[in-house]
Design a protein around this nucleic acid. Structure first.
Ligand code: FES
Ligand code: FES
Lengths: 133, 133
DNA sequence: TTATACCTGACTAAAATAGTAAGAATAGGG
DNA sequence: CCCTATTCTTACTATTTTAGTCAGGTATAA
């Protein structure tokens, strides 16, 4: 049930952008600051942009910035985007056997707990923290 | 952040044993009932036994039974055993950078939420549910 | 027009997962 | 005492996922 490295990078990138959310920061700069692999980060940023969490600026002096204010983006939204979903279940919400499935009822309760927790944490709540490799 | 197949099998096995917790049930029987791969289940049961969740009986008519009553075993204990821990963090609790680490503070909050949720669910609460492949 | 940076998709190496297989140890029944 | 059913232990293998790399294309400021 561990979170992927990819997700961790993404979260750290979002927090870094939240730190000075008025500036446009390039992938190169970001990767250096947070010591993350540049081309890998590129993919991750692309997904976050497609999900509507980031705005990108192309060309020289281009880069990324948050689409919304750090006080409006929850970490739940970030992780759900990167991880695909917050549910630990192996089968989708369309699984035909859902009804009365014991494993599912447990897994769904986990999802609810995670969602409630993470929807209460905003990027602005984390900008003061350090970012560690 | 998905739970492994292995963990799912283990949970289902525990619930099945909770259904008639006064009987000794063999791996073969269990694997058949729940349609799980027999030799894979064998490993899982072994771990659960080593963790003190099961008692085993060797020889003919042997098998497994719960060590404690279904009203005393939480699903949190089961999953923590199978999964190693309930924490989604990538680095252990001994990580030197823990202090003020942004990712960590988020991940620790997730762990707390999961733990609280799962420590409130006992095997006896799930015996009524069906088990699905 | 050129350098900078995002964008895209295909590719690869390593690690984790999901099993299989083989045999040793133990215990009950004839 | 032997046969058989079962757990126990370890080693191996195939598949999938993860974590990245690489090569090239596209937009844009200067
Ligand atoms: S197997 Fe899909 S919900 Fe239980
Ligand atoms: S890197 Fe281990 S706690 Fe942040």
């Amino acid at each position: 049930m561990r979170v992927s490295q990819r997700t961790e990078y993404g979260v750290r990138a979002m927090i870094a952008l939240a730190r000075d959310f008025d500036e446009v920061i390039s992938i190169k700069e970001l990767a250096e600051r947070e010591s993350m692999p540049e081309t890998f980060l590129e993919q991750i940023m692309s997904d976050l942009r497609k999900a509507g969490l980031l705005k990108s600026v192309r060309g020289p002096n281009g880069g990324f910035r948050l689409k919304d204010a750090p006080s409006e983006i929850t970490i739940g939204r970030v992780i759900a985007t990167l991880e695909g979903s917050l549910s630990p279940a192996r089968c989708g919400s369309d699984c035909s056997k859902q009804d009365g499935c014991s494993t599912r009822s447990v897994l769904d309760r986990i999802e609810r707990a995670i969602t409630e927790t993470l929807d209460g944490i905003y990027l602005k709540d984390l900008v003061g923290d350090l970012a560690h490799e």
